[in-house]
Amino acid sequence: MNMLKIADRTFQSRLLLGTGKYPSFEIQKEAVEVSESEILTFAVRRMNIFEQSQPNFLEKLDLSRYTLLPNTAGAKTAEEAVRIAKLAKSSGLCDMIKVEVIGCDKSLLPDPVETLKASELLLEEGFIVLPYTSDDVVLAKRLEQLGVHGIMPGASPIGSGKGILNPLNLQFIIEQSSVPVIIDAGIGSPKDAAYAMELGADGVLLNTAVSNANDPVKMALAMKLAIEAGRFGYEAGRIIEKNYGVASSPMTGMITS
């Protein structure tokens, strides 16, 4: 399988895994392990200093083994996203940022105008910028023209598990892009992940589909395999669909009476 290239980095794995909402640290650790993901996403938040009893699973992972992709979740404006991104970068642990500026609290769909503004500002600051966007083809084009390092269109609303609702738009985005396209948000099951890869996506970013599965570790494995299968399928080139049957066995040498 070809490698995933983002900016000047290369990755074996095309699965980017979120780190939220796992039932326990042990399960999260094993799921991350089994997924073979090399890029982990996480959020930037105030420390819970007044109630330190609450565990932070992320701190127990060996973060040095992974490329860290913090998000700007919680931001509603470009300004807030830039503040969060700078805080994350100042840790010295990462220079990539998933630009996530939510424009609608109910659907959690991104604000296209603020996402574009934030991406522009963060590129000027020298970040590796990966914006989470809707499946808007023109917005993806505009982001690419700004110089973002990848486009991350959602398959459906964050955490909805509805899978790929508009494969045509995703395909348009994939076809036009010269930067990696990572399908982010809305993946529900392995078939969605495989489908995204068969459409030609360069990667899939998911969280809830694994962390909230009955067995997150097994689902992490299923997603890894689905993404590999989908990618191999894409690279192999599928057959053209036909309306009628075409025999697989020879039409000559029939045994007749």
Binding site: K21, Y22, R45, M47, N71, L205, T208
Partner: peptide, 10 residues
């Protein structure tokens, strides 16, 4: 003053 850290997220 803000004391900030990383938490699980997608």
């Amino acid at each position: 003053v803000e004391l900030i850290h990383f938490v699980g997220g997608g």
